[in-house]
Amino acid sequence: MSDMNQQMTAKYKNNFLKEIEEQAEMGDWVKMCMQCGVCSGSCPTNFHPGWDHPPQEIFMLIRAGKRDEVLNSQSMWMCTSCYNCYVRCPRKIPITHIMHGIAEYAYRIGRAPKNQPTLHLSQTFWNNCTKNGRVNEVQLTQTLYFKDGIADGIKKAMAMQAAALGLVKAGRLNPMEALGGGHKCKDIKGIHAMLAKAKELEAKRKGRTA
């Protein structure tokens, strides 16, 4: 358990709904769910292994104060952001955003599941993208391919060989980016300042220090 997690547990005692309302993005919508189940019925990842709770259940678990069950859940991470639930919700609840909000919160307080592939991708993408203000596709792909070891990485790379060569020929992929650098945005310092400010504002809104 991280310090952050302990802090939050102490702060909200048993009121997990309040914790989600204040800490997770769009969490204040959770109380408006009327348990119709349209979101669960609409979710394309429904019934897949690893999808332990449909959105309706996540919402009910939050209201029932089942903190561990929600924060340890794989469900939020399995969301494909198709927005079916969001579009169909009769209460117009931004379910997709809430799922992401809860996932982000679980990560922030160190409760995200270990070796979660979606989390790994998100983390890798974020680091890659914010470094230069633009994505270095070659390095991003490398990181993902070789995440489970060299042999596995080479296997994946060979399988995608044709696609990669096609991209290079079409001028959509610059192999030189593998050496680092790559294309950058014009004002990297500005981007970094912007991100820092956003982080500061969000922290302030959620009542914690950055």
């Binding site: 709904l17 109380k31 408006m32 009327m34 348990q35 009910m60 209201r63 209460r91």
Partner: peptide, 23 residues
């Protein structure tokens, strides 16, 4: 929960006020 007619708005207002509804 059976909230016919405009009672649906009333239900929503209660949720907004923090009344918890459990099936």
């Amino acid at each position: 929960l059976r909230m016919p007619g405009n009672n649906e708005d009333f239900y929503r207002a209660a949720q907004n006020k923090g009344v918890i509804f459990s099936k």
